[in-house]
Computed example of a mutant assay.
Amino acid sequence: MTIPVSQWHVNAWQQLQAGRRQQRLPHALLVSGEAGIGKAAFADRLAASLLCEQPREDGQACGTCPACQRLAAQTHPDRLRLEPEEPGKPIKVDMVRQLIQHLSLTGHYGGYRVVTVEPAEMMNTNAANAFLKTLEEPPASTLLILITASPARLPATIRSRCQPMRLTSPDPQTALAWLQQEAPDSAPQEAELALRLAAGAPRLAAHYLREGWLEVRQQLIEALIGCAHGRTDPLAAAATAQEALKLDRQLPIHWMYHWVADLIRLAYDENNIKNNDMTGELQALPTPVEYSALHHLLDKLQQARRLTETTINPQLLWEDLMIDWAGLFSARRV
């Protein structure tokens, strides 16, 4: 049986549908939760429910009425999205002004208008200030859905004017069953690994499998191992990492951060590391390593995750990280 994404958010769904029946829906929702748990899918289902001409008893859209057909074709004029022009870029004030102008007009079908803002924390300061005015004077019959994995990065003035709704991950069995349904060609151990790397977030795990991220991860750790043993030049290892960075601005740095953290954990408990599928590779690195140097590299990786959101040259960023990584082991190779 097909497992809908909304199955693990059923309590949140029922809460909103109860508010709808009582005509007490908020004008703005702040939907938060870890990346990859289905926040956007939840918002899409809610939008479809509100725009559907014949919703089912449980609030789900019928999928067949003219409004649902327009939604499926992405041509419904009352379904609006505010998002960056490119991943990682900010949502700018001009985009918010265009949205405000659109909302000042009467809706096309006399029902709800639904706006999603994702990722909401990517609104720059001017955009957030402009959007705040809409929250303070919301248009009639309009639901604004702000979607974010980092609600603390939103201004407090915006958070305070939205009804918070935090979504959670499904239980491991449900998540794995859904993932195997979404990626039937993946081996069970690959699905389990992807789900663990995604911290239990099934849609993020599906992205890892679909986009070949497990292979990219393996290539990156092999570059790091080669660099540690002196078989790979740090600049060549940086080139491998930079290719991965083109696919995702932060994920390669996120993984390297946890590999370095696992080197520290290995000194205390080898059964408590995040990348337990790579225990052997990590244990085979030249030792001993100064823990102060490992902690220093952790700090640099944490800073690098923030720098990826700026205009920094990724090649220089990775070359600096790889030179530091190689330096950890240069005096300990045999």
Score class of each variant (00 low, 15 high):
A47T: 08
L25Y: 11
K39F: 03
Q23D: 12
L80V: 07
Q60D: 11
E34L: 14
L51S: 12
A72H: 07
L46H: 06
L29N: 07
T75P: 11
G59R: 10
G38N: 13
K39P: 00
A43Y: 04
F42R: 08
Q74V: 11
P26G: 05
T75I: 08
A40Y: 05
Q60C: 11
R21L: 14
Q17N: 14
R56C: 04
L29Y: 08
C52Y: 13
A73N: 02
E57K: 14
Q17V: 08
A47Y: 10
C62M: 09
G19C: 05
T75S: 15
Q69N: 04
A28D: 01
Q54V: 12
A28V: 04
H27E: 09
G59C: 05
Q74Y: 11
E57R: 13
L51Q: 05
G36I: 01
H76E: 06
R70V: 03
Q22G: 02
A47W: 00
G63K: 06
L71A: 09
A35C: 05
Q23C: 05
S49V: 00
A28K: 04
H76R: 11
G33P: 11
L30W: 08
R45C: 01
Q17F: 06
L25N: 10
P26T: 09
Q60Y: 13
E53W: 15
C52L: 04
S49K: 03
A61Y: 03
G38Q: 10
G63E: 08
G19F: 07
A41Q: 15
R21W: 01
A61F: 05
H27C: 15
Q23M: 00
Q23V: 02
A41W: 05
G36H: 02
I37V: 11
C68A: 07
C62Y: 12
Q22I: 02
R24N: 07
A73D: 06
A72P: 02
F42G: 06
A72S: 13
G33L: 07
D44Y: 02
R56N: 12
G19P: 01
L30A: 00
C68N: 14
R56S: 10
G19V: 01
A43V: 12
G63V: 05
I37A: 05
E57Q: 15
A41C: 05
L46E: 08
A41I: 05
A40S: 14
D78P: 08
G38A: 04
R70T: 06
H76C: 09
A35N: 12
G38W: 03
D58A: 13
R21N: 14
A72Q: 15
L29A: 08
L30V: 00
R24D: 11
A28I: 01
G36C: 11
A73E: 09
C62H: 03
Q60M: 14
A48F: 09
G19W: 15
C62V: 04
A67T: 03
Q17H: 13
P77T: 13
V31D: 06
Q17L: 14
V31P: 00
L30P: 02
L25K: 07
V31T: 03
K39L: 06
Q60H: 13
R56E: 15
Q17I: 02
Q17C: 07
A48V: 00
F42V: 04
F42E: 04
H76A: 12
T64F: 02
A41H: 10
G63T: 09
L80I: 13
R21S: 08
L16R: 09
Q22M: 07
